[in-house]
Design a protein around this nucleic acid. Structure first.
Lengths: 338, 338
DNA sequence: TTTATTTACTTAACCGATTAAGTAACACGG
DNA sequence: CCGTGTTACTTAATCGGTTAAGTAAATAAA
């Protein structure tokens, strides 16, 4: 059985395809009676419009893209959840692209969007993405783009972030209050703005408490788990940190693993804070003190802002800057201040 | 600046659009010299073909859909990872749809696929999906469909699953060996085939060890976390289980929470096994004995099979049935057999 | 009664790429 | 020298909706 098209409906009802199209879109040009007949036949024949024909003509795809480094991370998974909830409500489709932290992949993906495949893009950039992100610069000129969490500061676009500097400041202060004097910050990137913001908050907190910032204070980890593990173990042995802040979920788990390997007690030998949305954080051994990011809300907010721009081209999308606060949830991997 | 089209290239080079199209697809009908000129201009003008024009004409979208209950679950997140790795390699695009365990939503999503929006579908059905899944029955007649993990047994289609019955049998046996005599199975659905398979393995193990199967042996939990929590606590108080098997990741966490609330020691009072892919399982308090599913591999396998069908219509997709083994990883939430 | 307007359509162009069918120019075998 | 291929294109139809522009008939206004 062939696919049912508007032309078939037209022939059966002895009407023009234009009439069918207008009837289906509830145009005022069509009589109530005709609309009913069209709708009835469409339902009977199980007519489903071809989205690509429509997209081609209307130059809009009713589809958005989500570009993220990875999906097996509870932050991104929850963010997708938030995005999808809005998209589903608006009847939009969601294309997912994973960059696996590769800038080259990201550029290739973004280039494809110049084809009109998607009406808008929600993106959290890779750890490698830098100012010279040509694809991004180009993209924001062509379609609505919203950054969430990992923004590219050099590019003017809407941004949904958390209070990274603040969160890091508070986390650091919490460790200091718990007695730490030699704190290490595990960072995922040198160029990522959220990494730098977190480092900034960290530095500020150290400074405010007259603690020194040494080259060993900030550890830049790569995207390779094995290398990170190696780096971590070496650093832990050399520097005898008494506090660690893991700025990504993967790094938090890596710290637990490294401490296990080196038989370091948490929080006895090292206190640990993780930026994470792990639902299991409270059941970890020891339960993990976390900077918990509003992942779902950020995804939701990002999508909401994007759809406002899609609805009205006069919406000042590029000016949208929302900072959604994260919260420090204190558990047993850190010692409460005395 | 307008979007660059094939027609613009044609005008600039004083060629027909047909020539451009063929040159771009490296047709033998076009001279090498012309191909070079076309490619050069395309690169210069940054030409990106309109995917929807192409899809409309070719009746293929180079897009697949992934339909899953949720994304904030490490099994599904990893499965997406596996799927995406194959899709990216093949140059396909991935649309994500979340059903949130709602059968109605699932049906609506599947109906849309009759439009030709996607070339193929990878699906893990909802806990509500039953034999009367009209949308599914219809869909498999129209485009290639591959079930992964949660299959709908009444529908004839390719299936990528784990050895659910076996895994549950082994998990149960492990608990019995550890001294459990009153084991509860926490199930997510009455109709889901994987749930039933797991229940089957569970029952078989009980029978093989002369342990009774009571109405309290299998606990059917809903999709509502609060209700599940309530149910769990009540059941734990009434039945004094000495062993529990949580057949989903969410249920495993729920058990930990309930035990904490009721001050039940794991594994002292209750031993616990979870079906889960949590990377943090080994760091939980106590570390969680898991039936670890090959989530990435299942996604990878499902996508691989789907693409074989997309490449060759003679590929016997519906006969594809792969069972990828899961593994029981014994940790401290259960007692090893003496 | 005549003109203007509204209603309910139809016609045909269009979105941008693909492709079946056609063609002109040239080469080559017999 | 003719017929048959081959090469390298072009023409035009097509995919399935959408929409600007047109039209005939009915209704309202002048």
């Amino acid at each position: 059985m062939e696919n049912v098209t508007i032309r078939m409906l037209a022939e059966r009802l002895q009407l023009s395809t234009a009439t069918i199209s207008k009837a289906l879109s509830n145009s005022h040009e069509i009589s109530e009676e005709t609309k009913q007949r069209v709708l009835a036949l469409a339902a009977e024949l199980n007519y489903v419009p071809n989205p690509y024909a429509s997209s081609l003509r209307k130059k809009s795809s009713h589809t958005i893209a989500v570009v993220i480094p990875e999906v097996a991370d509870s932050f991104f998974a929850e963010a997708i959840n938030g995005i999808e909830s809005v998209a589903q409500e608006k009847g939009y489709h969601v294309l997912i692209y994973l960059t696996h932290e590769s800038f080259a992949k990201e550029e290739a993906i973004l280039k494809d969007f110049q084809s009109g495949r998607v009406d808008g893009v929600l993106i959290s950039v890779t750890t490698e993405t830098s100012a010279a992100a040509h694809g991004l610069t180009q993209l924001v000129k062509e379609i609505p783009v919203v950054f969430f969490d990992r923004v590219c500061e050099e590019v003017t676009a809407a941004r949904i972030t958390t209070d990274d500097a603040n969160a890091a400041y508070n986390a650091t202060t919490h460790l200091i209050a718990g007695g730490c004097r030699n704190i290490g910050l595990l960072s995922a990137s040198r160029q990522l703005s959220i990494s730098n913001r977190r480092a900034e908050g960290f530095r500020q907190a150290l400074a405010d408490h007259q603690l020194p910032l040494t080259p060993a204070s900030i550890l830049y980890c790569s995207n390779d788990p094995a290398a990170t593990q190696q780096l971590l173990q070496t650093a832990l042995q050399q520097n005898h940190y008494d506090g660690l802040i893991a700025t990504t979920e993967k790094l938090a788990t890596a710290v637990y693993l490294a401490c296990e390997e080196l038989s370091l007690a948490i929080p006895g030998d090292v206190q640990v804070i993780g930026f994470s949305n792990l639902s299991t954080a409270r059941f970890l051994q020891p339960s993990l003190t976390t900077v918990s990011q509003p992942a779902f809300d950020m995804g939701h907010a990002a999508a909401t802002v994007l759809f406002k721009a899609l609805k009205s081209s006069s919406f000042p999308l590029q000016e949208q800057q929302q900072v959604i606060p994260s919260s420090l949830i204190i558990r047993n991997s850190t010692k409460s201040g005395l």
